[in-house]
Design a protein around this nucleic acid. Structure first.
Lengths: 110, 110
DNA sequence: TCAACAATTCAAGAGATATTGAATTATGAA
DNA sequence: TTCATAATTCAATATCTCTTGAATTGTTGA
């Protein structure tokens, strides 16, 4: 993960419809979901959904694979993890005696 | 953390100068850094830095406290952790038998 | 081949955001 | 009070992004 990739990923996530899509796909895990299903979950028209799914794909946050008439989208969990790691890199200069500031960054996950 | 807060935080982070600022402040931990120091670290003019620091503050990602002539900015680590938690909420529907997709989200932290 | 379904592409208009340099506010020291 | 430092505010410009609806592409089954 470099700066350009991180800005691209964060730009992609900083939009209501796309954030809903990613969060929906996160819950779906490796199974993923078809474009139409994601569009419905995010409350978007098909053209809008397509536009935003393409943006997420360009940013490297999701992948697309065709399955018959549908196109299945899945979160790229390595990319998501890479982004999170980039955001909190060298937290508190990696000082192991300081826990108070870095602790909240690892606790909220579930 | 709700949807509006998350979009605001991600919008704030999705800009080169602001991302640099936050990453710099993350390494500074509870100590924080003065506006001028952050501006220098991010390679921004003072007016640009002020504009972007205000955006990060409005988004709830950093706090500002005056110390003599300087204004010290610090990352709000609870807000950062809340954002990360919101992004990966209910990953894989919290199925404990699935590790492959959620693992990368908790490993990259340094 | 034809009809139906799933999804993408396109163009135009509306709205939001970033940059610049000059001016202004706030603080501290002589 | 006066000067220097630290930082913010302002207005104008330029640029990017989102939405909409119609048209198009790709796939499947009758």
């Amino acid at each position: 993960m470099n700066e350009n990739q991180a800005v691209a990923a964060l730009s992609a996530l900083s939009q209501e419809t796309r954030l809903r899509m990613v969060r929906y796909l996160v819950t779906k895990g490796g199974e993923g979901a078809a474009a139409g299903e994601v569009a419905k979950a995010a409350g978007a028209s098909s053209s809008r959904a397509s536009f935003h799914l393409n943006a997420l794909s360009q940013a490297g946050l999701i992948t697309a694979t065709r399955a018959s008439r549908s196109i299945i989208y899945r979160v790229d969990f390595a990319a998501m993890g890479g982004l999170i790691g980039y955001l909190i890199e060298d937290c508190c200069q990696n000082d192991p005696t300081i826990v108070s500031c870095c602790a909240p960054l690892t606790k909220q996950q579930g």
